[in-house]
Structure formats: C-alpha cells, structure tokens
Design a protein around this nucleic acid. Structure first.
Lengths: 161, 161
DNA sequence: TGATTCGTCTCGATCGTCGAGAGATCTCAC
DNA sequence: GTGAGATCTCTCGACGATCGAGACGAATCA
C-alpha cells in the first residue's frame, strides 16, 4: 500500500468527520430556531423517522434511540408535549405503553428545515452521474457499517477479556 | 430529472444522515469510556485538531468552536483540567489569553480510540480504487460545503430580515 | 495617563439528566 | 380465574451542565 494511498484514505476519513460536524450544525440551527436543545431534536428526528417507517415509537423505544434513562425520557416528552411538538397516546393494545405522535406544525417545520437541506444536497449531486452516485451510496453504506460495528464493539482497552 | 434519479439522491441523503448518527455514536462511546459528556469530547476533538494544525486554541476560540457561552466554557475547562485532560497556559504574548494544551495520556487515548476507527474505515476502503476514492473525496467535500453553507444561512422563517 | 476594548473568570439561577422506586398493566403458570 | 413476576411509564430528589450579567486584569490607543 503506497504512501499516497494511505494519505488518500486518511483524507477521506477526515472528510467524513468534517461532514458530520457540518450536518450536526444544521440540526443545531434547527434546534435554536425552535427553541429546543440537541436531545430534543434528536428525539423529534427519531420520532419522525419511525412515523415514516410506519412503526410509531413508544416512550421506551425513544429512550433507547436517544440513549436516555427513563426518567430523562419522561422529562423530554413532558417538554416536547408542553410546547405542542407531540402528543402522548395510550396504546390500546398494551395500555402500559405510550405511543408518540408528532404534531402537524412540527412535522411541517421539520420538513421545511431538513427538506431544505435535502434539496440543497440533491442540487449538489447534480454534477454526478447515476453510476457515480451509486458508487457513493455503496461507499456510504460501507462506512456506516464500519462505524456502526466500531461503535458497538466492546473494546475496553483497560478492562480484561 | 427521472423519479429513479430523485430516489437515488434521497437515498444518498438518508445515507449521509445514518452515517453521521453512527459516527456520533463512536464519539459517544469514547465519552463513556473516559467518563465525559458529549460537549467534553467535542471540545477535546477541537483542541486536538487545533493542535495538529499548529494553531493551539484559546479558551474563547474553543467556546466559539463548540458554541458555548463564556461561563460554560470556563466550567468546561475546569472539568477537563481537574481530571487532567488538559492544561491552561497563560499566553505570554497576550496575557489576557489562555491557551489550551492536551495532556499526553488523553492525546494517546484519543489516538487509540479514533485511530482505531480510522484504521477500520481505511480497511473498509480497501475495495475501492484510487479513482473511486478520489471521486468519493470530491463528493464528500461538495456535500460538506453544501451543509456548511446551509448551516450558516440566516433563514429565520419568523424573524424579519 | 486615562478611556476603551478584549479575554477570561465568578456568581447565582435555570434546566436537563440520572438512580431509585412507585404504580399500572400485561403474561403466564397453575 | 388468580397470583407472581415481568414490563412500561412516571414521580421524586439530587446533581451537573449551561446561561446571562457583571467583575477583573491585560492590551490598545489617543
């Protein structure tokens, strides 16, 4: 493996990091505009994603998704519900559970903000052919897999076995 | 623009978001391992990046980088300094300023953790030719620019111009 | 030298997060 | 059915991260 090749790989790694920083800033901006904090936005995004996939989130699942303790999840939902970003609805099938429904205005605001980003991103992709885009997609999937595996690896450097 | 093309672009956008989530989780994992919170890790990364670029951060610049008020930045530095992750050093040129130096162990831990990720990412890139990697790099740069511009756009929907 | 600006820190208050545990509901063996 | 235990969410009290306002020393400039 040549030095130049090594360098290219490191460059791409750094580019991935820079990209995540910028995309994070977009979420941050949405948060400020809505008077929310980072966690709130992560939660709303998770709820929106779940709704889109047709499998609405419950309080507990949301807590897992955003890695929050149950008490914190309750507080989070209280905040979001109080300002009208979502509704809590008792699940009729399992009445212990609470399913989360985003409000229309919030859904619209999210679509406005993140849809705008998506539009800009799509515009930025205009210069790429279908084949190039397919390659990029494959690459992103690969890197996501790698990162996901790495994040979930139990690699405690200090702890034994 | 065909529907298939539209779909491909949306797919890539979603892939970008999934990737950021996974990469974020890697940072999260490092945070837990070191007993830090998200902000602390962002700060350490910013300090490390600055040090690498040969232009060490000051307290104020760090505050800007992680978007924290000055009082919060002071508290952040107190935390990190107390557990030995960095040192505050008075700038001799401008004695109002405080420049930040990361400790060796923390630098090593960071290199261990994020270096490991970088190794895995590089391994994941093995299947791509130099030309393909160059294309990916160009794409990532483009998307980073778009996201950066979008994040910095003043598009307050409510506030007047 | 005095006035002003700049960079950081202190103070008090607010809000997000957590662990522990309560209460309601579901599951399952009997 | 009924009771035991698991599951899901919420309440409570405590802690910590963040903030705005303002103090203080240091630099700048007239």
């Amino acid at each position: 493996m040549s030095e130049q090749r090594d360098r290219a790989q490191v460059d791409v790694s750094l580019l991935l990091r820079r990209l995540t920083v910028e995309l994070d800033a977009v979420g941050q901006r949405f948060a400020r505009a809505q008077g929310l904090n980072r966690t709130d936005v992560r939660a709303l995004v998770a709820i929106m994603d779940a709704a889109r996939s047709g499998e609405p989130l419950t309080a507990g699942r949301l807590g897992e998704a955003v890695e929050l303790a149950s008490a914190s999840t309750t507080a989070l939902l209280d905040r979001l519900e109080r300002v009208g970003h979502l509704r809590r609805v008792r699940d009729e099938e399992d009445r212990r559970r609470v399913v989360l429904e985003m409000s229309e205005p919030t859904m619209a605001a999210g679509a406005e903000h993140f849809g705008g980003l998506q539009r800009d991103l799509a515009a930025g992709m205009a210069g790429y052919s279908d084949e190039e885009l397919a390659l990029v997609a494959r690459f992103l999937r690969d890197m996501t897999d790698v990162a996901g595996r790495y994040a979930r690896t139990t690699d405690r450097p200090d702890a034994p076995g």
